[in-house]
Deep mutational scan, measured.
Amino acid sequence: EFTQISGYVNAFGSQRGSVLTVKVENDEGWTLVEEDFDRADYGSDPEFVAEVSSYLKRNGGIKDLTKVL
């Protein structure tokens, strides 16, 4: 089950073990991109978060400006 990723309007994530599946949706709710990120592939949590965040930004993730990150 996908849940909204904090700080984004149209990005959602689903966690299974160490694998986080993220997706970005358009205004109609269609999935634009979907990608798996395995936490085990990264040396640290900040590196993992930075990679996921960068992916979302590159692929149309819209920041939720009503929330302070």
Rank of each mutant, 00 (worst) to 15 (best):
V33A: 13
R58P: 03
V22D: 00
V52K: 00
V49H: 13
E1W: 12
V49W: 15
S18L: 05
E34L: 11
Q15D: 03
V22P: 00
N10F: 04
G43Y: 08
L56F: 01
D41A: 10
D64E: 10
S14V: 14
P46H: 12
N10L: 04
I5W: 07
L65F: 15
E35N: 11
S54V: 07
G7C: 15
V52P: 01
R58K: 12
S54W: 09
I62Q: 07
K57E: 15
G17T: 02
R39E: 03
Y8E: 04
L20K: 01
K57W: 08
R16T: 08
F37R: 00
T66N: 15
L56H: 02
Q15W: 15
K23I: 08
S6M: 10
E47N: 02
G13Q: 13
I5R: 02
S54E: 14
F12T: 04
V22T: 00
N59E: 05
S44F: 02
E25L: 15
V24C: 06
A50Y: 09
S53Q: 12
N26W: 06
A40G: 07
G43T: 09
F37S: 00
V33T: 09
L32V: 12
G43D: 11
D64Q: 06
G7M: 07
I62F: 08
V33C: 15
V68S: 09
S6T: 09
I62R: 10
G29T: 03
K57D: 15
D27T: 10
G60D: 03
V22W: 01
G17E: 04
D36M: 10
E35A: 14
D45Q: 07
Q15H: 08
F2S: 05
W30R: 13
G17S: 01
V68P: 15
S54Y: 08
S18P: 05
V33M: 08
E47F: 03
K23N: 00
Q15Y: 15
D38A: 02
E34M: 14
V24P: 00
A11Y: 03
L32W: 07
A40Y: 06
V24S: 00
G43N: 12
F37Y: 01
S54M: 10
A11W: 04
G29S: 03
G61Y: 04
R16C: 14
T66S: 11
R16H: 09
R16N: 11
E35Q: 14
L20E: 00
W30C: 15
G13N: 04
V49C: 15
F12H: 04
S44T: 08
V49F: 14
L69K: 07
T3P: 07
T3E: 10
K57T: 10
I5A: 05
V24A: 00
V52Q: 00
E1L: 11
S18A: 04
E1F: 12
V33K: 08
K23V: 08
N26L: 08
E47D: 07
E1N: 11
V9A: 06
A50R: 10
D38K: 02
L65Y: 14
V52Y: 05
F37P: 00
K23H: 06
D38F: 03
G29N: 04
K23A: 02
D38W: 03
D27S: 12
E34Q: 13
Y42V: 00
F48V: 01
E51Y: 10
Q15C: 15
A50H: 10
A40N: 11
T3R: 14
S6H: 11
N26V: 07
A50D: 08
V33N: 09
V33G: 08
A50W: 08
V9E: 04
R16P: 03
T66Q: 12
E47P: 02
K67Q: 15
D41V: 07
G7Y: 07
F37K: 01
K67Y: 15
D38I: 02
W30F: 13
G13K: 11
V68D: 15
F48I: 01
I62D: 03
L56Q: 00
S53R: 13
F48H: 00
L56W: 00
G61P: 04
E47W: 03
G61W: 05
E1Q: 12
E35R: 15
V49I: 13
G61A: 15
V52D: 01
F48A: 01
I62N: 04
Y8F: 10
G61C: 15
Q4W: 09
D27M: 11
V24K: 00
R16I: 08
A11K: 00
I62L: 11
W30M: 14
F2M: 06
G13D: 01
G17F: 04
I5Q: 03
G60Y: 07
E34Y: 10
T21G: 01
N59Y: 11
V9Q: 07
L69V: 14
V24Q: 00
S6W: 12
V19N: 01
D27P: 11
S14D: 03
R39V: 02
V19I: 13
F2C: 09
F12A: 01
V33L: 07
V49S: 09
I62A: 04
T31K: 05
D45L: 12
G60H: 06
V49Y: 14
L56I: 15
E25G: 05
N59V: 10
V49A: 11
T3S: 11
D64N: 07
F12V: 06
L69E: 15
N59I: 06
L20R: 00
N59M: 08
G7W: 06
F37W: 01
V24E: 00
I62K: 09
A40W: 07
S14T: 09
V49D: 12
A11R: 00
R58I: 10
D45G: 08
T21Y: 05
V9L: 11
V49K: 10
V22N: 00
S54H: 09
T66K: 09
G29K: 04
E25P: 01
L65A: 11
D27G: 10
L32K: 05
E34W: 12
E28K: 12
E28H: 11
G13E: 08
K23R: 14
I62M: 07
L20A: 01
W30E: 13
Q4K: 13
G17D: 04
V52M: 03
E25R: 11
W30D: 13
D41M: 08
V9I: 14
E25T: 14
D38Y: 02
Q4S: 08
E34F: 10
I5F: 07
D38N: 10
E51A: 15
V19F: 02
R39Q: 04
L56N: 02
E1C: 15
V9P: 03
G61I: 06
F37A: 00
S6A: 12
V68M: 08
K67W: 15
L65M: 12
E34H: 09
D38H: 03
L56Y: 00
D36A: 11
A40E: 09
L32C: 10
R58A: 13
K63C: 15
Q15K: 11
V52E: 01
E35L: 09
S18F: 06
Y42F: 10
F12R: 03
E34P: 02
L32E: 06
D27L: 10
T31Q: 05
G7I: 08
L56E: 01
G7T: 04
K67D: 15
D27V: 10
A11D: 02
S44L: 04
R39D: 02
E28P: 05
W30S: 11
A50I: 06
Q4P: 12
E28I: 11
N10P: 00
E28V: 10
E1I: 14
V49E: 13
W30L: 13
Y8A: 06
K67E: 15
S44N: 06
K63H: 10
A40S: 09
W30T: 14
Y42K: 00
D64M: 07
E1Y: 10
